[in-house]
Structure formats: structure tokens, C-alpha cells
Simulated scan of single mutants.
Amino acid sequence: MTRRPGKSGKDVLVVLFQEVQSLDVTGPVEVFTGAGLSVGDPGAYRVTTASLDGAPVRTFSGLTLVPDHALAGAPVPHTLLVPGGQGTRAPDARLIDWLRAHAPSAQRLLSVCTGAMLLAEAGLLNGRRATTHWAYSDKLARDHPEVEVDAGPIYIRDGHVATSAGVTAGIDLALALVEEDLGRDTALHVARNLVVFLRRPGNQAQFSAQLSAQTAQREPLREVQRWIAEHPDDDLSVPALAERARLSPRHFARAFRAETGVTPGRYVEQVRLEQARRLLEDTARNVEEVSRACGYGTPEAMRRAFVKALGSAPAEYRRRFRPALSH
């Protein structure tokens, strides 16, 4: 493999294989391509695809993708992206050999979803923190004990290696890299065009509070779940929520936990924390305003919740994700 000389911008090579997950490929590709168009420089990211022998591959959903190269003839990329899919279950040994031999030459090595399985099989995640789709995290940890698997975050960056969770998390990771390379405004422009959030931080859980808990079976309890999400600054005590569900507090608390898997208090904590993180990441509201909007009442109450759950105070959390708002 030879590096292209004398060109600005970043080469991004996406590895293709049979039964790849199509969104793992197209999501990041749309982000990188859109970023170049946004800044008026289509060469900001030069995206190419390659399969083992250069032949078309059939995705798990039945789409056919035609690669630009065979892997053997592909140039060394700045960024190498390995998607996931059903094809990672029994990968071609030649693909693992190629990754083991050539992936270390890339300045950035990325995986989406179960693409982490391929990186791990090639020994590229040894001694690193990594994530993958929540449904496969146990398998990754079991098959590769030398990898420090964390099933919680939507993506993890460990040095020049970044692994992401299922499907849309690849878009989040790509947006984070665009923001790093070309600035927040460019990443925001791309996100708006794709109608996605900018940006879920890597340490955000793969499940939102609403998805982490089960949806209640009974409509009164489902309505309470919706109310909590839409009114985090309201009175969300058990008696108030029980009255909304037209149940006694004791019956409500027992039924809510039985049907959602968490206590009402824990569910409220998760919703408020998630909402506060979003406001700190995506708005210019100060900490006091955010604490009121999310039902904490005082900045100190929100600080305690952040330190307990995230290990950092709200101001420090904002500095990590929105440094411009911290000055």
C-alpha cells in the first residue's frame, strides 16, 4: 500500500464485506461527504470503499454496494472505518489478516457496531477500552478478555482508535470527528442537513432514559412516563405522579417498578440528568437556569447529581463538550 502524496484533506477508507450493515457504511459516509460540501471543499474528506477482491458486496438488508478498490490496491488512509453487520460473525480470515497488517498504518482507526469484533479479532483493541452494540458487548468481552469492554457509551475514543455502538452511533462518531477537524459550525450544518442531533457526546448512554426503562403496559403509567419526560421541572414526587395515574402512592410505586424495571424516583433522576446534559451541551443557558429547567431547583442539587452519576460537576461537564460556552 502507498500513501497518496501531495494532497490536502483526509483520505477515508471504508472496508466492505458480505452482509455488512448498510447504515454503518452510509451514515458516516454521508457525514464526511456532507462536511466537504459544507466548507466548499469536496476534497476535505476523500471517501473510498474497498472489499477484499474489489467485487460488489451484498448488505444484510439486500442492497448491493460496489467498492472503489480491492483492499490490496487501496491507498493507506488517514482514517480507516470498519463497519459491522452479520458478516462479522464468521469473517473471512483474509480480512482479519489485512486488518492486522495494514490498519495500524492509519492515523485514525474507527469501527461501527460489530466492526469492533473484527478489530478485536485482528488484535487491534488489545489493552484498549472499546464499545460495540449493546447486544454484542458480552460476546466481545467473553471472546476477547484482553479488551476492556464498556457497553454503556455510544462511542469510545482510546488514542487513535475509536469504537462506536450500533448503527446511528457511527453518525455521532463521524460528526465528532468533523467537529474536531473542521469546527463545530461545519458539524452542526451537516447534522441539520441529516436531521440528527449535534451531537450526542461519546459517553452518552446507548439508551436514553426512556429506552433504558421498559415501556409500561398500562396506559396510565405510560402517560406518567411521557409526563415526566415533558415536564422535568414539575412536581415529580411519588404522590404527585400517583395522583396523575389515579392510583394510591403505594400501588403506583409497586406497579411502576414492576412494569418499567426501575423505581419512579430512579426514572425521574435519569430523565432529569439526561435533559440537563442536553441543555449544557446544546444551549448557552447557565447552570442555574439549567438546574431550574430540569427540576433540580438549585445548582448545588444538580451538581450533586452530576458528580454522583458522571464524576464531574456541571461546569466541568460543559467545558469538556462546549468549551466556547465556558469562557
Rank of each mutant, 00 (worst) to 15 (best):
P5E: 13
F17S: 06
Q18Y: 00
Q21R: 07
T26V: 15
P28D: 13
A35C: 07
G40W: 10
D41M: 10
D41Y: 12
P56Q: 12
T59N: 07
S61W: 08
G62Q: 09
G62R: 10
L71S: 08
L71G: 07
A74T: 05
H78V: 01
L81F: 05
V82T: 08
V82F: 08
P83L: 02
G84N: 01
G84D: 02
Q86D: 05
L99A: 05
R100S: 13
R100G: 12
A101M: 03
H102K: 12
A103E: 06
P104H: 01
S105V: 08
S105F: 05
L109Y: 08
L110S: 01
V112G: 01
T114W: 06
T114I: 04
G115P: 02
L118T: 01
N126T: 15
Y136R: 12
H144D: 03
H144N: 02
E148M: 11
E148W: 03
G152P: 00
I156L: 14
G159P: 05
V167N: 04
I171P: 06
D172H: 09
L173T: 05
L175T: 00
A176D: 12
E179R: 12
R184W: 01
R184T: 11
L188I: 12
L188G: 01
L188W: 06
A191Y: 08
A191H: 04
V195H: 11
V196Q: 07
R200H: 14
Q206C: 05
S208W: 02
A209P: 13
A216P: 01
R218P: 00
R222M: 11
I228F: 01
D233R: 10
D234V: 06
L236H: 05
P239H: 12
P239K: 14
A240W: 00
L241M: 15
L247S: 10
R254S: 14
R257C: 07
R266S: 13
V268M: 10
E269T: 14
E269C: 06
Q270V: 04
R272H: 09
A276R: 03
D282P: 00
T283K: 02
T283C: 04
A284M: 06
V287W: 00
E289R: 11
E289Y: 02
T298W: 14
T298R: 15
E300N: 15
A305N: 11
G311A: 09
A315Y: 04
Y317D: 06
R319C: 08
R319M: 03
A324E: 15
H327T: 13
H327K: 13
H327E: 13
